[in-house]
Design a protein around this nucleic acid. Sequence first.
DNA 1: CGCACTATGAGCGCTAGCGTACAGAACTTT
DNA 2: AAAGTTCTGTACGCTAGCGCTCATAGTGCG
Lengths: 239, 239
Amino acid sequence: MLPIDDPLQNHLLAALSADEYARISPHLESVPLPLGHVLYESGRELRHVYFPTDSIVSLLYVMLDGASAEVAVVGNEGIIGVALFMGGETMPNRAVVQSAGHAYRLPGQLLKQAFQDSIALQHLLLRYTQALLTQMAQTAVCNRHHSLDQQLCRWLLLSRDRLSSDELLMTQELIANMLGVRREGVTEAAGKLQEAGLIHYHRGRITVVDRAGLEARSCECYAVVKREYDRLLPEIADT
Amino acid sequence: MLPIDDPLQNHLLAALSADEYARISPHLESVPLPLGHVLYESGRELRHVYFPTDSIVSLLYVMLDGASAEVAVVGNEGIIGVALFMGGETMPNRAVVQSAGHAYRLPGQLLKQAFQDSIALQHLLLRYTQALLTQMAQTAVCNRHHSLDQQLCRWLLLSRDRLSSDELLMTQELIANMLGVRREGVTEAAGKLQEAGLIHYHRGRITVVDRAGLEARSCECYAVVKREYDRLLPEIADT
DNA sequence: CGCACTATGAGCGCTAGCGTACAGAACTTT
DNA sequence: AAAGTTCTGTACGCTAGCGCTCATAGTGCG
């Protein structure tokens, strides 16, 4: 059993060879990620990349009028800050902590260097980025075609997978912000799911009771994304 | 003035150094891309990558029930087949010709090799991929929050930019499929735009009359995406 | 214990876009 | 010229989700 806050809880870090890991591990720094904390602000310079361990971070776009929508979610399977090794340096999305926990961060320069020096790391990060690409594409599709009910199922499953726990600490208000819908809409949809015995929730604490039921009720988007993550990053498949 | 069908009409190819270009140009093969042609089918093996010159290709996800939604659009600023150098080999999106024209294709193996060998090419393609990432993210946001009117404006502008021509050959039916909406909805929205004097259309031929007007009527999504493309790929800025 | 705050529930009118059906107009083929 | 096909316009009832408002029930704190 790993300690509560171990870098290797992050699957990308865990997938590194002993050599690679030895090289960067001295520079890894543990940071607590409180709920709502903004890890990265749209368009800003990226100083560090973050490897979540037991936290979840949402990438969202915030519109001029303040409304927002999540475009992807990152947990211990991934990394925040792909723009660094992709060469763009910045990106137009905010990164917000959606489920409190921890992450390890690494100075951007070090990651860039490692990316150049190690083909294996490069391949790993690029495959992760492709998975992220798929997640974003599927979010677009889901936003277009699927009902709030279905989207909520997808979202709960994505969160559950990334925490490896059936208990999620998040209010309906927060979920509404992520999905870019009304809070009341989430209340209603969540009510139906509870009615159906798939989840149980109470004041900011959601428990997934029937995971298979959620999958059945979700749209295909969840499965498509999960399949791509599993295919592209076999080293992380566990849930 | 470039000849009608010159590889250098593709901005990525044009951005290569003389050396790099000399190395791959013997393997470039011109292919005509008729309207509706499926360049790549979801999940299939990728034999070639395609560099559009005077055509536009849509990446779309096709759902189990047959409904579809575009997740990104690629023209002469880009390349079809990022999954090859990203390491995933396949992706869950179909690539369909949305505006007829031509592209140059290159055997996948050759591109992979070139990607490994040339840092400059690598950086170029990764920056392009990041721009694509932004486009997908913004599509997700747009699908969530913006009206069909606004989305149509965005879409017309994206197409116009990629053709460098005010005349687009596409039916409302086609546009509806891309946007993932009803054909009647497009008829109505396009009617309003024509009413307002921004476009003129007639049986599959749309003319952008007032480009600035379209931008003003579009949501911020168009501008966000355009700004990122211009920033990440300065060598392509022309429109 | 009482008070303030936070999370959830519920109601109501409104609108965008859907599904469907049909009609006319323009272009193509014979 | 006639017939068929493709594209566009119009209409109508329907539903999901919005914006808003207010009520209730837990929770934490002085």
